[in-house]
Design a protein around this nucleic acid. Sequence first.
DNA 1: TCCCAGGCCACAC
DNA 2: GTGTGGCATGGG
Length: 283
Amino acid sequence: MPRLRAPEFNLPLTLESGQFFHWTREAGGFLVRHAGRRFRVRQDGGRLETDGDPAAVRRFFALDHDLPAVRARLRRDPLLRPAVDHAPGLRILRQDPWECTVAFLLSTASNIPRITRHVFDLGRRWGRHRTGTEAQLRALGVGFRAPSLVRAAALARRGWLDGVARLPTPEARERLMEAPGIAEKVADCILLFAFGRLEAFPVDTWIRRVMRERFFRGRRVPDRAIREFASERWGDLAGYAQQLLYVWSRHSGRASGRRPSVTRKVFSSVPRKIPISTRSPAK
DNA sequence: TCCCAGGCCACAC
DNA sequence: GTGTGGCATGGG
């Protein structure tokens, strides 16, 4: 069973932070479906046990990101500090671009349990760059998102996502937004969660609330102004700031002005070791 | 029952 | 340029 060094990493917090949906909990660990494969992963202190390809797992969890340096820099911002301190070990994943695109096309005006259900439903039925027909998708309950998924799959089969990784971020963003159903927010999610563009700052309803409250004195401001503010304030680490703010605001309910809608413990401790090798092998 | 969800788009003005 | 419904569905 391969073991990877994974310091400054919190596996459950990272998987449960709303950037990736294709996983299930197992005793003491997780079963992850990613890039057309599946692997088991479990954390043992500063190490990961996995039955997946070590290099691919390391890349997926972005264990190459210098998280201590990221956190130290962001922590210098006193208004961001509570969010940074709330979620040690949270990493921005490096997902498969197509699967990430599907997930965030499904995310529009939805919620995490439902996105998860749809991601699993699509994953069970179709392979890479395929989604079935609009009618089949509607039968799964994806609603108005169905035509966007069909179009995106057709684009992807013609190489739409190929080469995005080599484009500068503004051009990459433009490319992604060529697809119907992808505007600024979804494009930024794909750039951040699949292409490692850590400067991308997706503005969703939670980020809008927490940013208005914390940085704009409660004023209504256009999303564009929020993005520009984040870019100037956090630069090439704005994406990490975003994910920390997202998790913090959801866990605390702070920005919503109502009771926390997500009540889960704060994942400040690393899970205890439970042997993975006694479980049934993957596939 | 009602409000809202990791939005986008067409159409007002 | 900015503001506003409609879109499908279901979670809480």
